[in-house]
Design a binder for these strands. Structure first.
Lengths: 196, 196
DNA sequence: TGGATTAAAGACCAATTGGTCAAGAATAGA
DNA sequence: TCTATTCTTGACCAATTGGTCTTTAATCCA
């Protein structure tokens, strides 16, 4: 964030690393569910340092969401566009990701989905950032879909992409409750009917 | 909640009515997003009256979720089971409900879905109650699905039901962001491939 | 070495949080 | 009317909230 040879005392921590810790907190517990003291504990930074580096709590949240975008969303989008694997397999991996994660006891879900439920109603910037993330995933899904259906027009492709994204989001949310994951796997294979 | 001819001063408000107001607050803003003072303002009740009637904040939240269950979830389930309408139409109405609601500027989504994203990670009771709600909807979806596919076995029917539920949940969450609702309608019709 | 500049530490702040309590008010039955 | 019971009101509480400020420490460039 700052130049290494900037004047003054150098920062003793790595911005990105700390932001990732903050991201995991907001991801898991939402905006109001995370307090400054929790962030201080997790990052082992003083309040003033946090404010100097990232701004107020809202900015921290937004920056954390941005981190998620470049760390997680972008990676998922890249995987969807990676043509070295069969198109159908890439799509399946994406849609099943919520379930495989849940099988590994990971209930955190998807930060984007959680943020949409948690903060979209309150904060316009969050709402916009979430929409951007969703669009990026939807666009990425279009790539393998075009491989499967070279004949289909753009509108139908986009529609299929958003249907798959809705499934992904739905699974991500449902998995957070005590619902049986086993049943959802059957559901996913039924849902693959969208691919036809 | 209390008998009309109970001893002592009678309650000056209707429990259910107040609980509905509390429900709408938690629905919209989540557990941590709602403060006691907001509840006091909305219900026009004093803190102590609220505590006497509903218990602490957590109990209020759980009771509000219960209200949602009997008010909204049960109604949706009933509509899905209502055989006076064509099976396919009932399913479509259910899955499209998130989008028709969003078209009317209603961004609140679904309390069950929001609660799953918001509180499932933290509170076991919420997690269980959310799961029950999802199962009820999934079970209800099974009814019109059996009408469409009398030949299909129970496992496949349940799988289709959960796939449709995932779509519903996904739409509910996505709609909260700034995503274009128009696109989602095309997505929904593509997703109806699950019915085949 | 001496400013200039920036970061770290933690004391400090007003406001708000969820939650309780004591006093008065309204009812039913005796 | 009296008493038992329940409800309402609003003061009150400690703890925590997000956020600031001052002091001290570390670095760069001259």
């Amino acid at each position: 964030m700052r130049d290494r040879s900037a004047p003054g005392r150098p920062r003793e921590f790595d911005d990105t690393e700390m932001l990732r810790k903050i991201m995991r907190l907001f991801w898991k517990s939402g905006f109001e569910g995370v307090s400054l003291s929790m962030i201080m504990k997790e990052t082992e930074l003083q309040k003033a340092s946090l404010y100097a580096a990232f701004g107020d709590k809202r900015s921290m949240y937004l920056k954390a969401l941005g981190r998620y975008h470049t760390d997680v969303v972008a990676a998922a989008a890249r995987a969807l566009k990676d043509t070295t694997l069969p198109a159908q397999e890439r799509i399946k991996t994406f849609v099943l990701a919520p379930l495989t994660a849940a099988a590994g006891e990971d209930r955190s879900g998807c930060f984007l989905c959680n943020a949409s439920a948690d903060q979209s109603d309150l904060d316009a910037k969050t709402r916009a950032q979430v929409a951007t993330g969703f669009e990026q995933l939807s666009d990425a899904l279009t790539v393998p879909l075009t491989e499967l259906h070279p004949d289909l027009d753009a509108v139908d492709l986009a529609a299929k992409a958003q249907a798959l994204l809705a499934l992904y989001v739905g699974f991500r949310i449902m998995v957070r409750s005590n619902i049986a994951v086993g049943g959802l796997e059957h559901a996913a294979s039924q849902a693959m009917a969208v691919l036809r």
